[in-house]
Design a protein around this nucleic acid. Structure first.
Lengths: 97, 97
DNA sequence: TTTGACTTGTCAATATTTGTCTAATGTAAG
DNA sequence: CTTACATTAGACAAATATTGACAAGTCAAA
């Protein structure tokens, strides 16, 4: 499930309109629509605004948002698993210092 | 070890000058210097060119380069481990389909 | 002090991202 | 069928970010 699908689900559960949420975020309805459908990536501030408007845990949602960005980067790649292994190694070494 | 540190190491092993490698890549020496020092990110084509000039396995080097990009994104984050877990879950679900 | 290797700062050119507007599509009610 | 409203698509200008080059700088060895 992508970030967009996720927030759409929450918005619909709460029976809110795109228009309502977008207005609280100070963005155009069309933009929020695109974010939910994944044709546009939310900016960090927008992800935060969404957490607020949809009353979600901000850190959790931001993690989800960041994960989405990374998945998006990796999507086209061939050896995703291998790349993730390298990332983990690098991260581990970083945190040791 | 970052991508930049890595290619610098190889270049020095091979006793090549920045100037020589940069020229074969058709870029300015200064730019290659920045890439090696990590103040600039290589573009994909540049990473490929480096593989060629330094006679490294292209896919391997590109993996390393991509991993570096991801680490760079994550560096500032708080719950890196958690984010990586989410990424892996998402990737696993993607590959199942 | 000259030379050569490398680094740094700056800047214009380019490229990408962003947000909005308008028009289109979908849909449920009357 | 019309109307009304929600959502989506496309196109665009404006804002941002990236890129590569140049010139000037540091540094070390000769």
């Amino acid at each position: 499930m992508t970030f967009g699908e996720y927030i759409r689900e929450i918005r619909e559960e709460k029976q809110l309109l795109l228009r309502e949420v977008a207005s609280q975020m100070n963005i155009d309805t069309a933009l929020l629509s695109k974010i939910e459908r994944g044709t546009r990536m939310a900016r960090k501030e927008q992800a935060e605004a969404l957490a607020k408007v949809l009353k979600q845990n901000k850190n959790e949602l931001l993690q989800f948002w960041m994960a989405d960005k990374i998945v998006f980067m990796l999507k086209e790649e061939k050896n995703i698993t291998e790349i993730l292994k390298i990332v983990e190694q690098k991260i581990n070494r970083l945190s040791k210092k």
